[in-house]
């Protein structure tokens, strides 16, 4: 059982709920934020292990959030997976350059998304000490 905390940033309540159900079923804890401003606040307060970030957000879009995270020493090492309805052309390279670890266009393949989440999360000490 892992106890990693994932911050979900999306302005659509239904999509937040779907992602929360999916992540909880995979034994992750979740917290959420609904706009760019509260995403930064939540990242400070919750210190999540990973952030899943939408790009089209009110009060500071995803790129603003990425920029703020990168510029803050306390937050810059939290991996960010971008999950957006926006077109990969133009946005994918930009997001990766701005510090995102991976880019998914909605609707994303769930199995693939979970694989990348697993690969991206820093291994917790208890997990890596177990024999594989």
């Amino acid at each position: 059982m892992s106890n990693e905390k994932i911050l979900i940033v999306d302005d659509d309540p239904d999509l937040r709920k779907a992602l929360r159900l999916r992540l909880r079923a995979n034994q992750y804890n979740t917290v959420h934020a609904v706009d760019g401003y509260s995403a930064i606040a939540a990242a400070y307060k919750e210190q999540p292990n990973l952030i899943i970030l939408d790009l089209g957000l009110p009060a500071g879009d995803g790129f603003v959030v990425l920029d703020r995270l990168q510029r803050d020493d306390k937050l810059s090492n939290i991996p960010v997976i971008v999950l957006t309805a926006r077109d990969p052309q133009g946005n994918e390279q930009r997001a990766l350059r701005a510090g995102a670890t991976a880019f998914f266009q909605k609707p994303a393949d769930n199995a693939e998304l979970m694989d990348v989440i697993r690969a991206t999360l820093p291994k917790s000490p208890s997990e890596s000490s177990l024999p594989s």
């Binding site: 659509d12 999509l15 779907a18 909605k106 609707p107 769930n110």
Partner: peptide, 13 residues
């Protein structure tokens, strides 16, 4: 672009 959000919702649930 706009069609993708409801589509994602259907897909996810």
């Amino acid at each position: 672009h706009e069609l993708r959000t409801p589509l994602t919702c259907i897909h996810q649930f």
